[in-house]
Amino acid sequence: MVTRRSPARKPVAKRCPDCKGVGEITETVRVGPARKRRDTGDQQTALCLTCFGSGLAPTD
């Protein structure tokens, strides 16, 4: 009698810690000249630079 094994599972990729798996982060909009910048109450979305928008944690 031949016993069969189930195929090995692929490791589950971890979510990016900075964007929490979404691939985007929110940034505060800043206005004014370089020396006198101030934050506004507005937010904009930006691409997560840790995972480059994939949502997966970078590997070492």
Score class of each variant (00 low, 15 high):
residue 5 R to G: 07
residue 54 S to A: 08
residue 39 D to Y: 03
residue 14 K to C: 07
residue 55 G to K: 10
residue 45 T to I: 04
residue 30 R to S: 10
residue 20 K to E: 07
residue 52 F to R: 14
residue 58 P to T: 09
residue 45 T to F: 05
residue 27 E to P: 00
residue 33 P to L: 10
residue 22 V to Q: 01
residue 11 P to W: 01
residue 3 T to V: 15
residue 57 A to C: 08
residue 23 G to F: 03
residue 39 D to A: 15
residue 8 A to M: 07
residue 49 L to P: 02
residue 27 E to L: 13
residue 21 G to H: 00
residue 2 V to F: 13
residue 42 D to E: 15
residue 14 K to Y: 05
residue 16 C to S: 08
residue 27 E to H: 06
residue 2 V to H: 12
residue 49 L to M: 06
residue 57 A to K: 15
residue 52 F to W: 00
residue 22 V to M: 00
residue 25 I to S: 05
residue 11 P to Q: 07
residue 3 T to N: 14
residue 20 K to T: 02
residue 14 K to N: 12
residue 27 E to T: 12
residue 60 D to I: 01
residue 22 V to D: 01
residue 43 Q to L: 15
residue 52 F to V: 00
residue 32 G to F: 10
residue 13 A to T: 10
residue 18 D to V: 11
residue 13 A to E: 13
residue 24 E to Y: 11
residue 49 L to W: 00
residue 54 S to G: 09
residue 39 D to G: 07
residue 8 A to W: 00
residue 28 T to Y: 04
residue 41 G to S: 14
residue 17 P to L: 04
residue 30 R to E: 12
residue 3 T to S: 15
residue 17 P to N: 06
residue 5 R to D: 09
residue 16 C to G: 08
residue 26 T to E: 15
residue 57 A to M: 10
residue 51 C to M: 02
residue 27 E to R: 14
residue 56 L to H: 08
residue 43 Q to Y: 09
residue 46 A to M: 04
residue 58 P to D: 02
residue 39 D to W: 02
residue 54 S to H: 09
residue 15 R to S: 13
residue 7 P to W: 05
residue 9 R to V: 08
residue 13 A to N: 11
residue 53 G to Q: 05
residue 44 Q to Y: 04
residue 40 T to H: 10
residue 17 P to E: 05
residue 47 L to W: 01
residue 58 P to V: 07
residue 10 K to H: 04
residue 26 T to I: 04
residue 37 R to L: 15
residue 6 S to V: 11
residue 45 T to D: 04
residue 48 C to M: 02
residue 26 T to R: 13
residue 59 T to H: 03
residue 34 A to D: 10
residue 57 A to F: 03
residue 46 A to T: 08
residue 27 E to I: 13
residue 6 S to H: 10
residue 51 C to V: 03
residue 17 P to R: 09
residue 7 P to E: 12
residue 38 R to A: 08
residue 21 G to A: 00
residue 10 K to G: 02
residue 20 K to N: 07
residue 39 D to I: 02
residue 35 R to K: 13
residue 57 A to L: 09
residue 49 L to T: 11
residue 55 G to M: 09
residue 60 D to F: 04
residue 28 T to M: 06
residue 21 G to E: 01
residue 23 G to Y: 03
residue 16 C to T: 07
residue 41 G to K: 14
residue 1 M to F: 14
residue 23 G to K: 02
residue 27 E to N: 10
residue 48 C to I: 01
residue 15 R to I: 08
residue 51 C to D: 04
residue 49 L to D: 06
residue 40 T to V: 13
residue 1 M to Y: 14
residue 4 R to W: 11
residue 30 R to H: 11
residue 24 E to Q: 12
residue 41 G to R: 13
residue 18 D to Q: 07
residue 15 R to Y: 05
residue 1 M to L: 15
residue 43 Q to V: 14
residue 60 D to Q: 05
residue 16 C to W: 03
residue 3 T to G: 13
residue 4 R to I: 13
residue 1 M to N: 14
residue 25 I to H: 02
residue 28 T to G: 02
residue 28 T to N: 09
residue 30 R to K: 14
residue 60 D to N: 03
residue 8 A to H: 04
residue 14 K to F: 02
residue 42 D to C: 11
residue 58 P to N: 07
residue 35 R to H: 06
residue 9 R to S: 13
residue 32 G to H: 09
residue 5 R to W: 08
